[in-house]
Design a protein around this nucleic acid. Structure first.
Lengths: 215, 215, 215, 215
DNA sequence: TATGAATGAGCTTTCATTCAT
DNA sequence: CATGAATGAAAGCTCATTCAT
């Protein structure tokens, strides 16, 4: 019976929709205020739903925080997968990953503050999650394969640890954006202007490619 | 009257000591729990002093947080000054700064979390502080002079923005240490073992020196 | 139509079963946590049914509590009726009632805590119930008849108020069992060991029969 | 300096007074509504103090409940001590204890409901308290000595366990008063009229003394 | 008959801050 | 200089109950 089906779908979709709305509201709230500074009331308000429902679906503030973390990790890994780095030449792939990382962090400032919060709490949330570990392993694998291929092709130097490289790429973008407020306050130079951002990306590529390319 | 003088001195010395104790307790508390997660009660406890005294000396939680930030910034700038980078050759100076930055962050994990907290709050604390701005200008100046000298000497390549370089050096150390918990949780590799730390520093130096040295 | 009938029967049987399951779950929950401490959620869980159904059948928490009370009263009165005290000699009947009361309370600890809860709320639930009053009158009548017969036979002393006697029999068992936790905590003696329980029943019989038997 | 002393006393007395007010308010609230039904707000209101102060002095609802229990136990033990039962003849002492127990429970209905609440929670509060255990040991000792003396004097029968006797005395009073609401609702007889109360005490004494006196 | 989704009111507890001395 | 006592506001979370199907 179509009505019954539609009804079931509607109900089920509502539940999914409510959970998605909560996750979205929570992501923004946690990103803006950190874990301790986040307010369940405001999350409910952002989601346009009753506060009680958050507990109904997620149990507690901490569990909600973990759900948000898993969510944003899944998002960035999906985006990374969509790059299809394996289909490019090794040097291009590294450059593309560097550009992507910069752009992604730039367009997802919430990712940065959420990660900082997770680390402030010593990753006790994430370390309970199998999902996140499973999501992230393939990336380093891919990068390792690219580095190896580049070495064989003679375009990249050998002996590069893919994890170290990945961390360095992320670091160059992350730190700049994460600390842009204090850096601006301290050095009195606007680091977020269009020009400054372009310069940073250019600098990043110089540093990373200068490191991986064979002289 | 000697007694009066002694009394005054004693009182004033006690006052200084109390303030120092509070600052220390606050630094650890803010570093451990962030601004919102920090508890005035615990700060008082850490300082071994009455909570009321914090308000007497620092006014409010936010003002105390700013005082802590100014404090830790002063510390790192002092340490940087003590390096006497100008007395070294340009390449040595850059390597030394890289090593120093890594070591300092490693030995002062509170600096990292405090900065993250400051940035979470968009540096609204620091941007009110003249002291911090004054403290930081000399460093970039020094680094610029070193880069220029290196270029003239032919050992360093030209066109390097000292601020970009400084940020990159900091980034490579900061991100690794700041995110070590999540990185460990995600990639399942212990990044803080003695060996892993040595590898990271080595990698950092490779990246930075590879970038600044003239081919 | 047989199908319709069967359907109706089935439905009605299910309905009865659901109500019985709810009552059972509610009895245990109220007994364990009191009226205020009981949770509708847990009752639904104990019954293995949806929470909404409780409201469908019983209207509210208070009405459910009353239903539970009526239920347990009906149970104990049925058990008392089944003793057929009138068929025994007066002294035997009193001893039998004493033993029965002890055993029943021992085997139905929920009865005790439920009654305590009812009394905490000043019996405002029970006082609205005609059913309970009707159930309980016969008992005192029976006991009165037994006492009168015993007096006429010369085995029991006269002037005994059956209600007072019934209350005393209940009291000696009820208090011991109801307060066994605090008594144990306070006097540091295990009152619920097999031996201790046997001694208590023996003591109770001594007290009650010593009172009713003609010297 | 008298002013200083007075000031200190005042402050200290205020703290004591506040704690006493809270304890009193809590005692009534817990007695009226049980542990789960009690409301911290109402306790604060009864005490005429800020709710926060309850936590300042007592930590939590459970700890406050324990404090109340210790308090009411101390009260009844003090009252029992004040009877000086050892100074009376054995039979008089037992009668006096019976009368006292009845009167005390009658005049302190909160004691009964508090104890019921403690038992509902399986005495997990009291069992943590050393104070209560220490308070209660002497009583049974005293009663044992009285029973022994009575036996030697030939007025009391032998072989009576003082703890069993004490429990029975308490039981006969406690159950009647604790369950007066349900008993009234069920048997339709007013058990709390002046006449009914006098009859109950008389009955209690008959039962207890009939048991302990040598025939 | 039965149920998952949703809610408003209210719960215990916490927190930064102030009072009074 | 130093502190114990006290508080209003708000936090996370819970609860009995209802809605919608």
């Amino acid at each position: 019976m179509p009505t019954a089906i539609r009804a079931t779908e509607a109900r089920s979709r509502d539940a999914d929709r409510s959970q998605a709305l909560i996750l979205l509201g929570a992501r923004d709230e946690f990103a803006s205020h950190g874990l301790a500074g986040a307010r369940m009331d405001r999350i409910a308000q952002r989601a346009g739903l009753n506060k009680r429902l958050i507990y109904y679906y997620f149990g507690s503030k901490d569990e909600l925080f973990l759900a948000v973390l898993e969510n944003v990790y899944a998002d960035i890994r999906d985006a990374e997968q969509a790059l299809h780095l394996r289909d490019m030449g090794p040097a291009d792939a590294i450059r593309r990953l560097t550009e992507f990382t910069w752009t992604y962090y730039l367009e997802h400032p919430e990712f940065i503050t959420l990660l900082n919060s997770a680390n402030l709490h010593q990753a006790r949330h994430l370390s309970q999650s199998k999902r996140v570990r499973e999501m992230n392993s393939p990336l380093i694998q891919t990068l390792g394969d690219i580095l190896e291929k580049g070495r064989r092709d003679g375009v990249l130097r050998g002996g590069i640890d893919p994890l170290q490289l990945y961390i360095s790429i992320a670091a160059l973008a992350y730190f700049y954006l994460s600390n842009s407020h204090t850096l601006t306050a301290i050095f009195g130079r606007d680091l977020m202007s269009r020009k400054a951002r372009a310069e940073r990306l250019s600098h990043m590529c110089d540093v990373i490619l200068g490191y991986v390319l064979r002289d």
